[in-house]
Structure formats: C-alpha cells, structure tokens
Design a protein around this nucleic acid. Sequence first.
DNA 1: AAATAAGTCGTAACCATTACAAGATTGAAG
DNA 2: CTTCAATCTTGTAATGGTTACGACTTATTT
Lengths: 140, 140
Amino acid sequence: MTLLYENLLSELKRKNIRLSHQRLKVLEFLAGHLIHPTAEQIYTGLRKEIPTLSKTTVYSTLNTLVDAGLVRVINIENNEIRYDIRAENHGHFKCESCGIIYDFDADIDSLSSGSLNQFEIRDKNVYFKGTCPMCLSEKH
Amino acid sequence: MTLLYENLLSELKRKNIRLSHQRLKVLEFLAGHLIHPTAEQIYTGLRKEIPTLSKTTVYSTLNTLVDAGLVRVINIENNEIRYDIRAENHGHFKCESCGIIYDFDADIDSLSSGSLNQFEIRDKNVYFKGTCPMCLSEKH
DNA sequence: AAATAAGTCGTAACCATTACAAGATTGAAG
DNA sequence: CTTCAATCTTGTAATGGTTACGACTTATTT
C-alpha cells in the first residue's frame, strides 16, 4: 500500500500536478480504503482530519486524478460515481442488497473482438450485479 | 424487427402488464430505433404522434419494462440512462467524440471467473470507451 | 353500470455534480 | 527571504436528469 502510494506521488510530480495537502489526503484515503468510495464517503472520511475541507475540492481533486489516469471512475448506478485506485485489469461486482462493490479477476483484454478493429479503445469496463454470499446467507 | 416486437407484446401479456397506447409506442420506438436512446430522445421522438405524452410516463414505462426484463439499462455516463431492447449478449462501445453507442459482439459469459462462484449473478455488463472510426477520420 | 385497479399526466421535489468568483496556497525567480 | 503569477481551495448557487406525489383518465371486474 505504501508502495502504491509512493508510485502515485511520483506520477503526480511527473505530470506537474501540485501535491497539495487535500490531494495527498484524497489519494491516501483511496489507497487506504479499497472500497470504491463515493465522493461523499471520501468527504465524510476526511473531514475528521481536515474540518475545512470542501466537497467541491473532493470532486475537483477526483476529476484531476481521473484525468491524470491515477484514478478510475466506476459507473454502475446512474445516481452515484464510485472511484477506484486499483489499476490492474479487473471487473466489479455490485451487490444489490448491501451495495458493496467487490473486485474480481477478469481477463477483460480477451474480450475485444475483431469487430472493433477500426475503433480506438481508451477504456474497458466490466461489471456484474447480483447478490453477494453474505447477503445470500442472511435470506434464510 | 416485427418479430421482435410481437415477442415483446406476448411477453407483456404473460406478465399481466397492460398494453396501453403509450407503452406500445415506447416499445415500438425502441424496436425501431436501435440507438440506445435516452428517455429524453424517446419523449421527443414520440411527441409528434402523441402530443399529450408526458415525460413522467416515458420514465415510468421504461422502469416497468426494465423490471419486466424486456429492456436493459445501459449505464456508461453518470448523467444519462440509456435504454436497450436487444437481449443477446453483447458489449457497448461509446464514442467520446460523437456520443454514439455501438454494439459489438462479446462473449461476456466466458468472463465469470471462479472467484464469483459463491455469488448470485443477475446481470452482466461490458462497455468500452474511445473514438469511433468516423470521428477518427475527421481528425485529419 | 358501478366499483376497483392500473395508467397517465403535470408540477414540484430531489440530489449528485458542476459553475463560478473570491480568497488562499504553492513553486519559481530574483 | 520576498515577490508574483499560476494554481488550488472554498462556499454558494445553479444545473439537470430522475423520481414523488396527487388528480384525473382509462381499463378491467363483478
């Protein structure tokens, strides 16, 4: 995790993005809470340490990090954006009962079929929906 | 296409969903315009024939059809819901330049890895983003 | 034909996200 | 260290797609 965090910092420096206090804290939160949080969750989580933090800053920082390629957007529901710092190829499973988003290994690259060979692909996403084992067992 | 439409109607009857004028028109629009439209586009498209149509009805109808399993929601951007009537397993490619969403064949079922064998999967989605050939050629 | 259920409609509310402008911070140059 | 311009942060207000709600209309049942 520390390694991940260090890599992110050098990546920011390389792209000439200032390492402000707020940005570092947002990155730290993402690296330390691999729960695909919403902007609201990040905001609430950081307010303890930074009482003056503004929600606008969280959104603005996240957009900056997404543009820089350090953070990925997860669009599963249309009424909330989730953010993910993990870069490796993986899919997301959202439990419709508890709302938790799980990572799962998926060979996404093997999907790109020949019918898209004239297209410039910049981003690949896979998500499933259903019920997680924990919620399944509670239904008894 | 007519075949598709007929199948949808019998499916609605089977589920005891009334075949109101508005619902038939929404279905007809979806079957006749395979462009993954927004609710707004459906609303605008149908107002010519049904001047009294309400946007609320379009949303309500779409939600009914989605719950009945006849229509699928496509969440790619967080600020618009797109609707798709095609049922077969396929992925979506959204061009970030012109906004068009293309279908492409993808063996989505081959993705479900073993790490999800305790999960109840109800819905699988794959979408890519990038630039389509048309927009690529215009960049010259 | 009356009664009950379901569907439609318009308006208003909701709420996550963004726009904007003023004030604060940062990093580089001298 | 100081200055200065560029960038970043903040709060408030706006945006806009979607939903809640209540009145009215249409369909189905008895």
